[in-house]
């Protein structure tokens, strides 16, 4: 089936967002880009099942997420390793804006269970509604809400541990202050 120019342009425009989501799932940008490539090919192959005018981005995110977890399942044993080294990989990504606190944040993010991390990313960074995120993750809206909430609590905890108790008034900023001083 020929793909309309408008749809092609929308697909092209979705790539930065797909990459960002893929990085947060896979932990390193090389694997993330392989995921995006696979997603684009799959999307192209089944564009006839996409209803133009509906949410293309959510549709693409669903494909990418399914692809990620099917790869994880296929890899079997390797997964455990992938999960184990995920923290190291994500943390070793250079912080491109050069801010130390962002690196701390990445590290904390990498320590979340993947279901919580993806929920938090979809709602907090990709800009999806709870309903859309639930559709993408194929679960109930309430499940997404509780995952996001648990993810936030855990992050707050992890980042507070980093900052210690001295700068309680604003622990996240305190991390920055402490780092730039030391």
């Amino acid at each position: 089936m020929p793909v309309s120019d408008a749809l092609r342009d929308d697909l092209l425009g979705s790539i930065p967002n797909l990459r960002a989501f893929a990085v947060s799932l896979a932990g390193n940008s090389e694997r993330a880009d392989d995921l995006v490539q696979e997603t684009l090919m799959k999307a192209w192959a089944k564009f006839d099942s996409f209803q133009e005018g509906t949410n293309l981005r959510a549709w693409l995110f669903t494909i990418l997420r399914n692809e990620f977890y099917s790869q994880v399942r296929k890899r079997g044993r390797e997964v455990e390793d992938a999960e184990g080294t995920y923290a190291a990989r994500l943390a070793s990504q250079p912080a491109q804006n050069g801010h130390m606190d962002l690196r701390d944040f990445r590290e904390a993010l990498s320590q979340l269970p993947s279901d919580q991390r993806e929920a938090l990313i979809l709602v907090g960074a990709s800009g999806f509604s709870y309903e859309e995120a639930a559709e993408i993750c194929e679960c109930a809206v309430g499940t997404i809400k509780s995952r996001v909430s648990r993810a936030r609590s855990r992050l707050a905890e992890l980042l507070a541990l980093e900052a210690g108790e001295t700068y309680g008034a604003d622990a996240l900023s305190a991390t920055v202050i402490m780092r730039s001083v030391s």
């Binding site: 930065p16 684009l40 944040f105 938090l120 990313i121 960074a125 990709s126 936030r152 604003d170």
Partner: peptide
């Protein structure tokens, strides 16, 4: 929550702002 959201978007936007690789 606001602080976490700010950091989350900074992390995400770092990737968003990268140029789309030629391979795509």
């Amino acid at each position: 929550q606001g602080e976490i959201g700010k950091h989350l978007r900074a992390f995400y936007d770092d990737v968003i702002n990268e140029p789309v690789p030629n391979r795509f």
